[in-house]
Design a binder for these strands. Structure first.
Length: 453
DNA sequence: TGAAATGTTGGGGCG
DNA sequence: ACGCCCCAACATTTC
């Protein structure tokens, strides 16, 4: 456990009341798929607290009103929480902070989910960083060695009336589109740490190269756990250092690469903090004049995984069925949406947000702007992925494609990346033709980009 | 954390 | 033996 708010609360008080508030209006934004994760995560947390003779209090509604009610009913004198960084949540929490402070309560917030707070990493000119490498260099130079805080002694429990998790109906029922999730994911703090251990053991050494091969389990798959706070980046950082000490043969470049990915997460949080409209507004204002096409039909093809490009469609099916998509494929499908289809990146970000279990406002928004070319330290617009070349390079045997597109099971490897080029007899019958010609689409995109200058 | 177009080089076939 | 062409392989630039 690495929960500074809880650690401080248990250390300071004679009794604590752990509470989770589902605040749909002004709390952290939840994607549709994430309600499934939230259900299981709260269930696991509740079980863990039970083992300490504590009861998790569940409440739904406006956070301020709920807290105010609990404070009065249970004679509460202090409120502690770990900070969230979504702009609207920052605003909400500022109000809550002041409200209870004025009432004479002790109110404290803590850093539970970042290695560095956004305001701790600034340039010499006191500006926030807009280039990742400079940002990360500064972090590595100044970053304090992370330390974990744990509950040392559980004080007595305050029992409050709790709503029932089942009544919240967070799980989808008809239809149960989450049926595939449980095959792939185990939710909760314990599962998160088992995942980390497994990755450090089997995945880290080869991370540098395997991370790009979607057919292989080369990534950590920790992102949903990180998002929901089931594991902290500090825990990951320290475990990584430990693994390096324990195994002198461990690949340095792989470990550093993985650290850098945590760095990107922090960079995204910093961008969102200083550019609060990152999820809707072009970071680079030049892109405000970009001639995007609002093609709903093409958008639907992309969402359903029916573009005719196997690597794109496999990714979109993986997303729909498992609530996740491999990072390499995220870049490919995002490039396809914004450059081959010229659909605004916000539409892609929205779809990702509603379908990803790891949907995260900072990461998702920054990632989409990065691909679209409008972001901070973004890929230049003319860097257009070729879905066929990418497929050949990173899924050479079509393993990933065949896993998610069963209708291509019998297509020979030679044609798996571009089945429309197969001779008549080998062409799959129940697979669509490409909705655009990549070569032509690329030229159109470059012409559209010219208009920005 | 690209890809395509264009430029350069060097080896082999061939007259 | 020599120059010429072809073109693959690699490097550079351009989008």
């Amino acid at each position: 456990m690495d929960n500074p708010a809880l650690a401080a609360a248990t250390a300071d008080s004679g009794a604590v009341l752990p509470v989770y508030i589902l605040d749909k209006d002004s709390g952290p934004k939840l994607g549709e798929a994430q309600y499934w994760w939230l259900h299981h995560s709260l269930s696991a947390l509740s079980d863990d607290l039970k083992k300490q003779q504590h009861k998790l209090c569940l409440k739904k509604g406006k956070a301020l009103e709920i807290l105010d009610d609990l404070v009065q009913k249970h004679d509460i004198s202090a409120i502690y929480w770990n900070r969230c960084y979504e702009p609207q949540v920052i605003e909400r929490d500022k109000i809550i902070f002041q409200y209870f402070k004025d009432k004479g309560l002790t109110v404290k917030s803590f850093n539970g989910s970042l290695l560095n707070e956004p305001w701790q990493v600034k340039t010499k000119a006191d500006e926030y960083y807009k280039v990742f490498t400079a940002y990360w260099k500064a972090c590595m130079k100044q970053m304090p060695p992370p330390s974990l805080v744990d509950v040392e002694r559980w004080p007595s429990a305050i029992e409050a009336e709790s709503e029932h998790l089942a009544d919240w109906k967070l799980l989808p029922s008809k239809p149960d589109w989450a049926s595939g999730f449980a095959d792939v994911w185990q939710v909760g703090e314990k599962a998160a740490h088992e995942r980390l251990e497994a990755f450090l053991c089997d995945g880290l050494d080869d991370y540098d190269t395997a991370r790009d091969i979607p057919g292989r389990p080369g990534t950590s798959r920790l992102s949903p756990h990180l998002h929901f706070g089931e594991i902290s980046p500090r825990q990951i950082w320290l475990a990584l250092q430990q693994a390096l000490e324990d195994d002198a043969m461990m690949s340095r470049s792989s470990a550093e690469r993985f650290q850098t990915e945590l760095g990107w997460r922090e960079f995204c949080y910093s961008l969102l903090y200083y550019f609060p409209r990152l999820d809707e507004q072009n970071f680079n204002a030049k892109f405000d004049g970009f001639p995007w096409q609002d093609d709903d039909e093409a958008l639907r093809c992309w969402q359903k995984g029916q573009t005719g490009y196997p690597i794109v469609d496999a990714g979109m099916r993986e997303l729909w069925q498992s609530g996740y998509m491999h990072n390499r494929v995220r870049m490919i499908v995002a490039s396809f949406l914004t450059k081959d289809l010229l659909i605004p990146w916000q539409k892609g970000a929205e779809w990702f947000y509603s379908t990803l279990l790891d949907a995260d406002l900072a990461n998702n928004s920054a990632g989409w702007q990065w691909t679209a070319g409008s972001g901070a330290d973004a890929a230049p617009y003319f860097r257009i992925f070729n879905p066929i070349t990418q497929s050949q390079r990173f899924d050479p045997n079509g393993e990933y494609i065949k896993r998610w597109l069963p209708e291509l099971a019998d297509v020979p490897v030679k044609y798996i990346h571009a089945p429309w080029q197969a001779p008549e007899g080998l062409r799959p019958l129940d697979y669509v033709d490409p909705i655009v010609d990549h070569g032509a689409a690329r030229k159109t995109a470059l012409m559209a980009y010219e208009q920005l200058k």
